[in-house]
Deep mutational scan, measured.
Amino acid sequence: NNDALSPAIRRLLAEHNLDASAIKGTGVGGRLTREDVEKHLAKA
């Protein structure tokens, strides 16, 4: 659900052409954090 993404996370996802649903969020309520996105990028 993109409504739960902060603007910074949306921008980071867009810059790397990532789909938020492909990344498991570890923030409050399962929200994506910058660390989640960076860890996903490091794996790729």
Rank of each mutant, 00 (worst) to 15 (best):
R11L: 07
R34N: 12
L5P: 06
S6R: 05
L12Y: 04
N17K: 09
R10P: 03
H40C: 05
I23P: 01
N2C: 07
T26M: 04
A42Y: 05
K43W: 05
T26S: 12
L5F: 05
G27Y: 00
K43I: 12
D19Q: 11
A4S: 14
E35G: 10
R10T: 13
L18G: 02
D19W: 02
V28D: 11
A44F: 13
T33R: 06
G25V: 04
N1W: 00
S21P: 04
E38N: 09
H16F: 05
R10I: 15
L32C: 05
G27T: 03
L41K: 01
R34W: 15
A42N: 13
E15W: 05
N1F: 02
A4T: 14
T33H: 02
N17Y: 08
L32S: 01
E38H: 10
T33C: 03
I23T: 02
D19I: 09
T33F: 00
A42D: 12
L13Q: 00
D3L: 05
D36S: 01
N17P: 01
L32W: 04
P7Q: 12
A4R: 12
N2Y: 02
A4H: 15
H16I: 04
H16K: 02
T26H: 05
G30F: 00
D3F: 00
G25P: 09
V37K: 00
A44C: 07
L5R: 04
G29D: 14
A20S: 09
G29T: 05
R34L: 15
N2R: 08
D19K: 09
R31T: 15
E15Y: 07
L18I: 15
K24W: 03
D3M: 05
D36R: 00
A14C: 07
L41T: 04
D3K: 10
P7M: 04
L32H: 02
G27I: 03
V37P: 00
H16V: 03
K24G: 06
E35W: 07
R10G: 11
A44I: 15
N17L: 08
K39L: 12
L32E: 01
G29A: 09
I9N: 05
N1G: 14
S21F: 05
K43G: 12
A20R: 07
I9H: 05
L32F: 03
V28R: 09
V28E: 14
R31F: 07
L41F: 06
V37M: 04
K43D: 12
S21R: 10
G25R: 07
L18P: 00
R11D: 15
V28I: 13
E15H: 06
G29S: 08
A4G: 14
G27V: 02
D3E: 12
L12R: 10
L5Y: 03
K24I: 14
D3Y: 00
L5A: 06
V37Q: 00
A8I: 14
G29Q: 09
D36E: 02
E35K: 10
G29K: 08
A42K: 13
I9G: 02
L18E: 04
K24E: 12
R10K: 15
D36G: 01
K39F: 07
G30R: 04
N2Q: 13
I23M: 06
E15D: 11
E38R: 09
K39W: 06
S21T: 10
D19F: 02
K43P: 07
D3A: 08
L32M: 08
N1E: 14
A42V: 13
P7W: 00
N2A: 10
V28N: 10
R11Y: 04
A42T: 11
L41E: 02
E38C: 07
D36A: 02
A4V: 13
L18W: 02
I9M: 12
T33N: 04
L12H: 14
G25T: 05
A44N: 13
E15V: 06
D36Q: 01
V37Y: 03
N1I: 13
V37N: 00
K24S: 10
A4P: 13
K43Q: 14
P7K: 12
L12E: 14
R10E: 15
A8G: 11
N1H: 11
R34P: 11
L13C: 04
A8L: 06
A14S: 14
A14W: 08
K24R: 13
N1L: 09
E38W: 08
A42E: 14
N1A: 11
A4D: 15
R31N: 10
H16T: 04
L32V: 14
R10L: 04
I9T: 08
R11V: 06
V37A: 04
S21E: 10
R31K: 14
N17S: 11
L32Y: 02
L41R: 01
I9S: 03
P7E: 15
E15P: 01
G30D: 06
E35R: 09
N2F: 04
S6A: 10
G30V: 02
H16Q: 04
N2T: 13
V37D: 00
N1D: 14
R31V: 14
S6D: 15
R31E: 13
E38G: 06
V28C: 00
A22Y: 08
E35P: 06
A4W: 15
D36L: 01
L41I: 15
L13M: 05
S6W: 08
V37F: 04
S21I: 08
G25F: 00
A8F: 03
V28F: 06
A44T: 14
R34F: 15
N1V: 13
V28K: 10
A4L: 13
R11G: 14
R11M: 07
E35N: 10
D19Y: 02
K24Y: 03
A22M: 15
K24F: 06
G29M: 08
E38V: 13
D36Y: 01
L18D: 02
R11T: 08
N1S: 13
A44S: 13
E35F: 08
N17C: 06
L13P: 03
E38F: 13
L13R: 00
T26Q: 04
A20D: 05
G29E: 10
N2K: 13
A14L: 07
D3I: 07
K43L: 11
L32P: 06
T33L: 09
S21Q: 08
A44P: 10
A8N: 10
A20H: 07
